[in-house]
Design a protein around this nucleic acid. Structure first.
Lengths: 302, 302
DNA sequence: GCCGCCCCCAAGAAGCGCTTATGCTCGATC
DNA sequence: GATCGAGCATAAGCGCTTCTTGGGGGCGGC
């Protein structure tokens, strides 16, 4: 087996014409060069260099090897370059999955910052929510998943084998029509909305809503359900019912005809980034994760 | 510095999908594979493989490396192939230099045998005699030189740094016109030809002739000098003088009108092959040398 | 004739790579 | 739900490789 290191040395010897000069060029001693050349000759089974007086000449086999060396070493260098570009965030792609419309502020901010910091990187964005997003992660179809979990949820997801990075604690707020009796209230307890018609969000949020309401002693009467947050806001604004939404979801929607009222006691969902332990070491993934965390801090502060 | 060995292992891991299988394919243990992959990841500074549950997936950097690997490894294999062909005498060239017309039997026999044994090898043949041929050797313009030296010559060549392989001891014979008084003699002493007109060979042979004659107490009267042996024979055959020639040179010429008489005391020249110590290790050179020696044994036997 | 350059050789020390042995995780099976 | 098999990680031990240092010899230039 010819080693690339040997080819590098052979080429240096061929160009400089001496072992000593090659050693200087490669940053090692002359005996090291001499030994490597001996090893290479032994491994190919034929002399490669002829010591004729002072000068060092290549044999035909040596010439053949040097001829191939440039291509091989160029290939190695190209490979190193490409990998270094990925490692150095000058290239590389991240496949990001986020829950639908949940990341309307976080993701754009993070991706904008990522692009500004590392213009060579590319991000693909898809929408899915757990458990689908976790499945995508585990099957290798994405690198990073944005998800959320409700604090104190009934069934905890099995994320034990994943890297779970909390990004943001997002509190729930009540949304009531602006003519509603509680529209001007400082805050509202969920029980006070027991008799209202409800407009629910996505299936998972709906489950959480039911759980919270049952904790307060009633079962909500759900008239509408949609996972489209602007639609929920619109329905509330039209006076068709009340809703409970994550604050982050409300923030990106203009609440026409609806009012946001703080919910007491506080119910929060935690927005997290999920990835595989190994993927967390991949530079592009780590950088994206970092920008998501930074974006989350920005949202939390505002 | 990426090592080719690592690429080979990475490729095996990528194709087999597991470290254990790669180890089996490569004939080493699983920890060896594991360690090499760790070393490779460390050397490029980014993960290359993602351990997701049971299966082993490539990261983007890993894919890039595998993509380059095939080309690099193919280059290495091609280089090994080419060198192995030279080492295995399936290819390769020898640049042979021989003294003019001195090798009319030796060289053709040897080269024919070489070609028969190793059809892929190529031999280039040039004519020169020492010191020119030695110069060509030292300057790297030829690989193997056929030369000769007279035993007991006045000036010994400085062949100390060369490989000198004696091939043949070639005795000198006298050539006299067939009507000459000595034409039927069993043998002739050089002194008996003191009064004859001489036909001399090449410059070096002429020098040797003069030296031998002076050793016998006379200076030959040289009427003609040519390094063309058939011409010498022709001149003698035409009765224009006598000559002393190497037996080998006479053998390849039909002695029309001339007779060969053994010379006493015996004067011999030694035909040798010369090469550089390092070049003697080159398979093609060694093989050619061997065939020359074998051809010489054949000539000596006949 | 001396000096400098360059190569080879030998010995010692450091580093590297492989193997064996062991523990752990995961997935399939009963 | 427990067991079993497969596969990876880790650690220890060993041998090999490879480097450096130091010394010797040869060749060319001043």
């Amino acid at each position: 087996m010819i080693e690339a290191r040997h080819l590098r040395v052979l080429r240096a010897v061929a160009t400089t014409g001496s072992f000593s000069a090659a050693g200087r060029e490669l940053g090692c001693t002359q005996p090291a060069v001499s030994q490597q050349m001996k090893a290479l000759e032994a491994s190919v089974g034929t002399p490669l260099l002829v010591r004729a007086g002072r000068e060092m000449r290549l044999t035909q086999a040596g010439e053949a090897l040097v001829r191939h060396a440039s291509g091989i070493l160029a290939g190695l260098t190209a490979a190193e370059e490409e990998v270094a570009a990925i490692a150095g965030l000058r290239a590389g792609r991240v496949r990001l999955v986020s829950f639908p419309s949940g990341s309307s502020t976080l993701v754009p901010t993070a991706l904008a910052a990522l692009r500004a910091a590392h213009p060579g990187t590319r991000v693909s964005l898809e929408e899915a929510e757990p458990p689908r997003s976790v499945e995508l992660l585990r099957e290798g179809d994405c690198d990073l998943a944005l998800a959320f979990r409700y604090e104190g949820a009934a069934v905890a997801e099995d994320w034990d084998d994943l890297v779970v990075r909390p990004l943001l604690a997002d509190r729930l707020v009540a949304l009531v029509p602006e003519r509603h009796r509680l529209a001007r209230a400082e805050s509202v307890a969920i029980g006070e909305l027991a008799q209202e018609p409800w407009i629910a969000g996505c299936p998972r949020c709906r489950g959480q809503l039911v759980q919270v309401c049952e904790g307060a002693g009633f079962t909500p009467r759900i008239d509408f359900a949609t996972d489209d947050y602007p639609a929920v806001v619109g329905l509330v604004g039209a006076g068709l019912g009340v809703a409970v939404l994550p604050q982050l979801a409300v923030e990106s929607v203009r609440p026409r005809g609806a009012r946001v009222v703080r919910l007491e006691p506080e119910v929060r969902r935690q927005i997290v980034a999920l990835t595989l332990p190994d993927l967390a070491q991949v530079p592009t993934v780590a950088a994206t994760l970092e920008q998501l965390a930074r974006a989350a801090r920005g949202v939390g502060r505002s």
